[in-house]
Design a protein around this nucleic acid. Structure first.
Lengths: 98, 98
DNA sequence: AACTTGCGAAACCGAATGGTTGCATATCTT
DNA sequence: AAGATATGCAACCATTCGGTTTCGCAAGTT
């Protein structure tokens, strides 16, 4: 089970979860209420996100609060870097043309 | 076969292809030489990348040159936007702390 | 102590994924 | 014209994926 952040964000539901808990920590049940699938399915997604360290847990009694590990997302940004220089170059070329 | 850009970049090989052809257009054969899998496997990856419009083709005789559609990659950047504001906020908070 | 609730883990299932081999076709080269 | 080369496509296969159902357990509630 090779997991990396790019596989993690490949799934639509996982991306939605990320957006959902970006601003406030939430329990699996609360998260699952926003989707049409079962709590267990969401739990599996959370497991994957946790394994990739995109999400962190905080236990509070019998509840577990999940929140976004924003730092990790920078890795995607970092990967984009190589292309960013290209699209900026394109922009400059267009700029010169005008 | 629901394809989106996030699924496209989920695969390690496809990301490598993107990097490879970012600066210069290449033929499937030339691309395949950089990997351990068959030309056909690479061809399938190129098909997926083409369907997602991450890559564009240009036929030249019997050769097909594949090159990166940099604009499309901005979509990932756009998605990152929502989190960028958060990590900048975190940075500012840290800044105030210091 | 008995019940309820929040959660993860395992077993199972159909669909998708990434790879291979084997073609068919179009374009060069001789 | 005959052969070599570049490529896409289809069929097949093992593995992974996303989902469900079922279960077990820990932590609250009565």
């Amino acid at each position: 089970m090779r997991r990396d952040i790019f596989q993690a964000i490949a799934d639509q539901t996982r991306r939605a979860i990320m957006t959902l808990i970006a601003l406030q920590a939430m329990t699996p049940n609360a998260i699952a209420e926003n989707f049409n699938s079962t709590r267990q399915a969401i739990s599996k997604h959370l497991r994957i996100l946790t394994e990739c360290e995109i999400v962190k847990q905080e236990q509070q009694g019998r509840e577990i609060y999940y929140s976004l590990e924003v730092e990790k997302i920078k890795e995607i940004d970092k990967w984009l870097e190589q292309f960013r220089s290209i699209w900026e170059t394109n922009f400059n070329q267009l700029d010169e043309l005008l």
